[in-house]
């Protein structure tokens, strides 16, 4: 609890420092409405994927297929949208149909992942490693490897418009983050997910429906990826399978950076959101400073590794000491029962 809070505070401090530095260093470039708007419409597609990854990781799993799901959804939506122009279907209907299709496709993808993991007990990393190829492969098959472009003009609202000066993608992300927050903090699904991540067997013995909860988790994960796909294709006004593949590792990075325990059972939504902001801020900042994206990549690796050391290593020392202390009162207590 307090660890999560400390972590969020540390991340917040880092965010403020970076923001202040950039504002002072580049007052005319960084702190402009245009730049803020552009940042706020850039990160949501990635941010949604990161939220998805966090949910999977909280249950002690991982979902390597999120970008592939976004690709498949994106391809299906793009296909519908671009066809609609030729067929002279009203844009509103086409957009509606595309959204419904994305929903259906993402739910199916989520169900497949969930079933593999929860029903067939395939380790999540392997199940989603396989479905990643399956989903992305399907996207490639549908498009024949080409990109699909030109959508009804109205559709660009999703990725490019501002309402009252606030970019629509940002609003979508905010809404999704709130929903994810409510799920994690206040819903039975979130409670069960966290406990399954903490200990699968204990959950089974406590009357939690593990199978159902895990399947639902991967469906929610997939839906978030589906929403991300809508923003992606709208912003680019086209869809090419393979888009956003670099996002995958970054989502894991941000999740861990934000304080999600890769072993499950602990997640820190605030930490992750701050992590996403920091990522965007540094990227834009370095961009404005014309520092190469490669250097950014380097920085990110270094940041993840140092965070790892801080996140896992230091608390473990502290905890280990505490635990050791507790062990004396209680020397054999973990030798509780037969295995």
């Amino acid at each position: 609890m307090s660890l999560a809070r400390n972590q969020s505070l540390a991340l917040l401090a880092l965010l403020v420092i970076i923001a202040t530095t950039l504002s002072i260093a580049l007052p005319s470039k960084f702190l402009t409405v245009i730049n803020l708007q552009s940042m706020a419409s850039q990160f949501p597609e990635f941010g949604l994927l990161a939220l998805a990854m966090v949910l999977a990781m909280i249950t002690g799993g991982i979902d390597l297929s999120i970008v592939a799901i976004a690709n498949l959804c994106g391809v299906v939506a793009a296909y519908i949208l671009s066809k609609s122009i030729g067929m002279e279907i009203a844009p509103s209907i086409a957009i509606f149909a595309a959204i419904i299709a994305v929903l259906i496709v993402s739910v199916i993808c989520g169900l497949i992942n969930g079933a593999l993991i929860a029903k067939m007990n395939v380790p999540p990393i392997l199940a989603t490693l396989g479905t990643q190829g399956l989903f992305l492969g399907l996207a490639i098959v549908i498009t024949g490897g080409h990109s699909i472009s030109t959508f009804p003009e109205e559709f660009s609202f999703v990725g490019n418009a501002n309402v009252a000066g606030i970019p629509v993608p940002f609003m979508i992300f905010t809404a999704a983050a709130i929903v994810v927050g409510v799920i994690l903090q206040r819903s039975r699904q979130g409670f069960d997910m966290t406990l399954i991540g903490a200990n699968f067997t204990v959950s089974k013995y406590s009357g939690i429906d593990n199978t159902r909860t895990i399947i639902k988790t991967y469906v929610i994960v997939a839906i978030l990826a589906g929403i991300a796909s809508l923003i992606m294709i709208s912003r680019a006004n086209s869809m090419r399978p393979g888009y956003g593949e670099a996002y995958l590792l970054s989502t894991i990075l941000v999740a861990v950076l934000g304080g999600t325990d890769p072993d499950g059972g602990f997640g820190n939504l605030w930490g992750v959101i701050l992590g996403i902001f920091i990522l965007q801020l540094t990227q834009s900042g370095l961009n404005i400073l014309s520092i190469s994206p490669f250097f950014t990549k380097f920085i990110w690796g270094a940041a993840l590794l140092s965070m790892l050391v801080v996140n896992f290593y230091l608390p473990k020392i502290v905890e280990h000491r505490k635990l050791e202390r507790a062990r004396f009162r209680e020397n054999n207590r973990d030798i509780a029962g037969p295995e």
Partner: peptide, 21 residues
């Protein structure tokens, strides 16, 4: 004693970034 997946994710980003930069 850190988790291998996350470490190698980090180092691959670090190594590749450094290589390109």
């Amino acid at each position: 004693n850190l988790p291998t997946l996350i470490v190698t994710l980090g180092t691959s980003s670090l190594f590749h970034g450094a290589l390109l930069e």
